[in-house]
Simulated scan of single mutants.
Amino acid sequence: MPLRKTKKADLMAKYRRVFEISLITSLVLMIVAFKFFPDFGGKEVKIEGPQELFTVEDIQQTKQENRPPPPPKPPIPIEAPSDEVLEDIEIGETEIDINANVEAPPPPKEDKKIVEEEPQYFVAVEEMPEPIGGIQAIQSKIVYPEIAKRAGVEGKV
């Protein structure tokens, strides 16, 4: 059973009334202060300094040049299957013999669940790893796609 506040201990019940009373009181004090004490010492504040003169110049509006749009990107050629490849395909028989005896598929193999150990993480490394053969070995194994070569597509990856 939740605990309930008593009306005497509940501060939020009186919050709005207390806020309104304090607001009215502060406004009354401000009105009285300005009514009975309109002058603040009677001193006038004069700010004098050199006056700067400037001339107004008309600025001509610039025009934007109409530049031709950039050339479109070259299309990437997509290899379509040629007629020679299509002639090599043979379609097998598609007739179904309803009276033939069909053997049931073999039962599924039971896979043993392998419990993996938690990986061990190293916090500090004494020697930084290097690729086998250096960076030259990695660069020698990179093969640029033939389609991209023909399309003239270049760039960094």
Rank of each mutant, 00 (worst) to 15 (best):
residue 25 T to R: 11
residue 26 S to D: 14
residue 26 S to M: 14
residue 26 S to P: 05
residue 27 L to I: 07
residue 28 V to A: 14
residue 28 V to M: 15
residue 30 M to T: 02
residue 30 M to E: 07
residue 32 V to G: 09
residue 32 V to Y: 06
residue 35 K to I: 00
residue 36 F to S: 07
residue 37 F to W: 10
residue 37 F to K: 02
residue 37 F to G: 01
residue 38 P to K: 05
residue 38 P to V: 03
residue 38 P to H: 04
residue 40 F to N: 14
residue 40 F to E: 14
residue 41 G to S: 07
residue 42 G to S: 00
residue 42 G to Y: 00
residue 43 K to A: 04
residue 43 K to H: 03
residue 44 E to I: 09
residue 47 I to M: 15
residue 49 G to E: 07
residue 49 G to T: 02
residue 49 G to F: 02
residue 49 G to A: 06
residue 50 P to L: 02
residue 50 P to D: 01
residue 53 L to H: 12
residue 53 L to D: 13
residue 54 F to D: 09
residue 54 F to Y: 12
residue 56 V to W: 01
residue 56 V to L: 06
residue 57 E to H: 09
residue 59 I to R: 11
residue 60 Q to P: 08
residue 61 Q to G: 07
residue 61 Q to N: 06
residue 61 Q to R: 13
residue 62 T to G: 08
residue 62 T to N: 01
residue 62 T to S: 02
residue 64 Q to S: 10
residue 65 E to C: 14
residue 66 N to Y: 03
residue 68 P to Y: 03
residue 68 P to S: 05
residue 70 P to K: 08
residue 71 P to F: 04
residue 74 P to D: 03
residue 74 P to R: 02
residue 75 P to T: 00
residue 77 P to T: 01
residue 77 P to R: 01
residue 79 E to Y: 05
residue 79 E to I: 09
residue 79 E to K: 07
residue 80 A to S: 13
residue 82 S to W: 04
residue 82 S to E: 09
residue 82 S to R: 13
residue 84 E to Y: 08
residue 85 V to Y: 05
residue 85 V to W: 08
residue 85 V to Q: 04
residue 87 E to H: 06
residue 87 E to K: 10
residue 89 I to W: 14
residue 91 I to T: 08
residue 92 G to C: 09
residue 93 E to F: 11
residue 93 E to W: 10
residue 93 E to N: 12
residue 93 E to T: 05
residue 94 T to S: 10
residue 94 T to M: 10
residue 96 I to S: 06
residue 96 I to K: 06
residue 97 D to A: 11
residue 97 D to Y: 04
residue 98 I to L: 15
residue 99 N to F: 14
residue 101 N to R: 10
residue 101 N to S: 15
residue 101 N to T: 11
residue 102 V to R: 05
residue 103 E to I: 04
residue 103 E to R: 04
residue 103 E to P: 00
residue 104 A to R: 03
residue 104 A to C: 11
residue 104 A to Y: 09
residue 105 P to A: 12
residue 107 P to G: 01
residue 108 P to T: 11
residue 109 K to Q: 02
residue 109 K to V: 00
residue 110 E to C: 14
residue 111 D to P: 04
residue 112 K to G: 14
residue 114 I to P: 00
residue 114 I to V: 06
residue 116 E to M: 07
residue 116 E to L: 05
residue 116 E to F: 09
residue 117 E to F: 13
residue 117 E to T: 11
residue 119 P to N: 10
residue 121 Y to P: 10
residue 121 Y to Q: 13
residue 122 F to M: 08
residue 122 F to W: 08
residue 122 F to C: 06
residue 123 V to T: 10
residue 123 V to M: 15
residue 124 A to N: 15
residue 125 V to R: 05
residue 126 E to D: 03
residue 127 E to Y: 05
residue 127 E to K: 12
residue 128 M to I: 02
residue 131 P to I: 05
residue 132 I to R: 12
residue 132 I to S: 11
residue 133 G to H: 04
residue 142 I to A: 13
residue 143 V to D: 04
residue 143 V to S: 03
residue 144 Y to E: 13
residue 145 P to Q: 02
residue 145 P to N: 04
residue 146 E to M: 15
residue 146 E to P: 08
residue 147 I to Y: 12
residue 148 A to C: 09
residue 149 K to F: 12
residue 149 K to Q: 13
residue 151 A to Q: 07
residue 153 V to Q: 09
residue 154 E to P: 11
residue 155 G to D: 06
residue 155 G to H: 09
residue 155 G to R: 06
